[in-house]
Simulated assay, not measured.
Amino acid sequence: MIKLHDLEFEPYISEEEIMMAIEEISVKLNKDFGHKRPVFLGVLNGSFMFASEIIKRFSGDCEISFVKMGSYEGTETTGEVKTLLGLNQELKGRQVILLEDIVDTGNTLVEIDKILKKAEVEDYKVVTLFYKPEAYKKNIPIQYIGMEIPNKFIVGFGLDYDGLGRNLTQVYKRK
């Protein structure tokens, strides 16, 4: 059991389970993109640990860039996604692999979809470590999913509650 700010969380997904999911995604990404030179685009702050693990396992040439989006206050989404740090790299005509820590409402994906279309990328694929199918109501396809989970609030492995918990190596759910 851990306490972050005013909330208690209990262990939910072990570090071993997370690493197994990352390994499975990595095998598929190497098969599909190992012969290309994709740009991995991590969505900060949450995806930094996931992005690091994926990049370490990618066997081909690649580049990495980040965007920072924000839509949460506490444990609730505001429904409004703001771009806090935009693209700083030319992506026109490039293959992009979008790395998300979690896909729940899909609001962030909609905003990133607009950004990538405006940037005129050749194509992009969505990779997420965690996916909440009961919360996802958008029509942007998600090609690589580490784990499907119920619509519960989780922290750890990059995910936070008001800034705390990102450094945890396993995932905890709200008690």
Rank of each mutant, 00 (worst) to 15 (best):
M1Y: 13
I2R: 05
K3W: 10
K3S: 12
K3H: 12
L4K: 03
H5D: 09
E8W: 10
F9S: 05
E10G: 09
E10W: 13
E10T: 14
I13E: 01
E15K: 13
E17F: 07
M19G: 12
A21I: 02
E24I: 05
E24K: 08
I25P: 01
I25Q: 04
S26L: 10
K28D: 15
L29G: 02
N30I: 04
D32F: 10
K36D: 15
R37F: 09
P38K: 04
P38V: 01
V39Y: 12
L41W: 06
G42S: 06
V43K: 02
G46N: 04
G46Y: 05
F48R: 04
A51M: 15
E53T: 04
I55H: 01
I55D: 09
K56W: 11
R57G: 08
S59T: 13
S59Q: 15
G60L: 00
C62Q: 03
I64E: 10
S65Y: 14
M69K: 03
T75G: 12
E76T: 09
T77L: 01
T77M: 03
T78M: 04
T78Y: 09
G79K: 00
E80Q: 07
E80D: 08
V81R: 01
K82Y: 15
K82A: 09
T83H: 01
T83L: 15
Q89H: 14
E90S: 14
E90K: 13
R94P: 05
D101E: 11
V103S: 07
T105G: 05
T105I: 03
T105R: 00
I112N: 02
K117C: 09
K118F: 11
E120W: 10
E120Y: 08
D123I: 08
D123S: 12
V126M: 07
V127Q: 02
T128Y: 08
F130P: 05
E134R: 04
K138P: 10
K138L: 07
I140Y: 04
I140C: 02
I145N: 01
G146M: 08
M147W: 12
M147N: 10
N151T: 15
F153V: 05
V155P: 09
G156Y: 02
G156P: 03
D160K: 06
Y161F: 15
R166Y: 12
R166V: 10
R166D: 14
T169E: 14
Y172S: 01
R174T: 14
K175H: 15
